Computed example of a mutant assay.
Amino acid sequence: MTHTRAVLQRYAPGVLLSGVLAGVAMALGQLDWLRKHGLSALSLAILLGILLGNTVYGRLAAPCAPGVTLAKQRLLRLGIVLYGLRLTLHDIGQVGLAGVLIDALVLGSTFTLAYLLGTRWLKLEPNAAILIGAGSSICGAAAVMATEPVLHARAENVTVAVATVVVFGTLAMWLYPWLFVLNQHWPVVGGGVHGFGMYVGSTIHEVAQVVAAAHAVDSAAADTAVITKMVRVMMLAPFLMGLSAWLACHQSPAQRPGPHRGARGGWSNIRMPWFAFAFIAMVAFNSLQWLPHPVVVWVTDVDTALLAMAMAALGLTTNLSAVRQAGLKPLLLAGVLFVWLVLGGALIHCAVLSLL
Rank of each mutant, 00 (worst) to 15 (best):
L47H: 02
I102Q: 06
K36H: 11
L117V: 15
L85I: 03
L97Y: 11
G38N: 11
Y57W: 13
L48Y: 00
Y57M: 10
P66F: 14
V81C: 10
G96R: 07
G84Y: 01
L75I: 10
G58Y: 01
L78H: 07
D32W: 10
Q30C: 12
L70Y: 10
G49N: 08
K72T: 02
V68A: 13
A41K: 01
T69V: 09
V81N: 05
P63S: 11
L48G: 00
Y115E: 11
I92Q: 03
L52W: 14
L82W: 01
L107E: 01
P66C: 13
S109Q: 06
T88M: 05
V24G: 07
D32E: 15
L89V: 14
L51S: 13
L60N: 07
V68Y: 05
G29Y: 02
I92S: 03
G108W: 00
R74M: 08
A104S: 15
H90D: 11
L78P: 03
L85T: 08
L97M: 14
L97F: 12
Y57C: 08
K72L: 07
R86Q: 15
R86F: 10
L47M: 14
D103S: 10
K36R: 12
G29E: 07
A114F: 04
D32M: 10
L117D: 03
G67Q: 08
L113Y: 03
P66R: 06
I46L: 10
T88V: 05
A25K: 03
C64S: 15
L105F: 07
L78V: 13
L42N: 02
G29P: 02
L101F: 08
L47W: 04
I80L: 08
